[in-house]
Design a protein around this nucleic acid. Sequence first.
DNA 1: CCGGATCCGTTTCGATACTG
DNA 2: CAGTATCGAAACGGATCCGG
Lengths: 149, 149
Amino acid sequence: MPGKAKSERRSGCPVSISLEILGDRWSLLIIRDLMVRGLRTFKELQQSDEGIASNILANRLRRLEAADIIVAAVDETDRRKISYRLTDRGIDLAPLLLELLIWGARHEKTAAPGDLIARMEKDRKGVVAEVRRRWSEHDATPFLPRFAK
Amino acid sequence: MPGKAKSERRSGCPVSISLEILGDRWSLLIIRDLMVRGLRTFKELQQSDEGIASNILANRLRRLEAADIIVAAVDETDRRKISYRLTDRGIDLAPLLLELLIWGARHEKTAAPGDLIARMEKDRKGVVAEVRRRWSEHDATPFLPRFAK
DNA sequence: CCGGATCCGTTTCGATACTG
DNA sequence: CAGTATCGAAACGGATCCGG
């Protein structure tokens, strides 16, 4: 790669650093799909989110991997497939994602399972614990069945 | 290929919509500066975050305003100044921002007030309530004194 | 087929300079 | 002070190609 070191200023606040990884339209969406929708493979992720370009998806996956938020591993059941999983760091994003989900449900009137969100809001800790439990057990069950298309 | 509308695909999940607004490196940073650092004016915001370009800042401020997350108003004390404030929708982002802060403090080892974060983590509700209280009272006091430069 | 890599036109970003 | 104007650089994203 020619020409790498360019703009090298950043505020030093942890939030900034986090946003250097998460601060784009796709990264958190990918994490949501992994965490909450139970998606695993490149193709599943590509078909979700209604059309992320394959090169962009590949780029984000590598960035998230480099940030130790996800890991790529050969699928246990199907040796040909690669499945992406959240690391502990990635799972720790559950509270953040939950709040994002809650905020979106509250303020964007997209057809979202309102009652489910309401339950989430009342039991944040329980929800996060549930996500954590499922992931530690390698349970691929989607937490949310599906969002409105 | 002509015929189809251009970029008209988006998943419909509230998270996606939210990320259409928040999904960039600067927006949440600006919100943080308003909410947590007590910054108000264009210049303050520009000098914070170590160098956001003025055109980008202007652009983001207008986007956030269009999304009804912030409002621009003539400063009460100084008629020449314009001060930006969070709307109710914006204030509702407090839990999200708190989680982002916690995650960053946990996983990015930037010089952050670790004990303060720890207290935040133990009393999320209290912190959010405090932010809400200060904003409802038009109290401009920064919640966090200052981050490491 | 799956998981990308490459090419390439378009959009957006961002640094600097400038302005009401 | 609070922004525009400009313009090169980077990112995006669609199509296509490719190794396993």
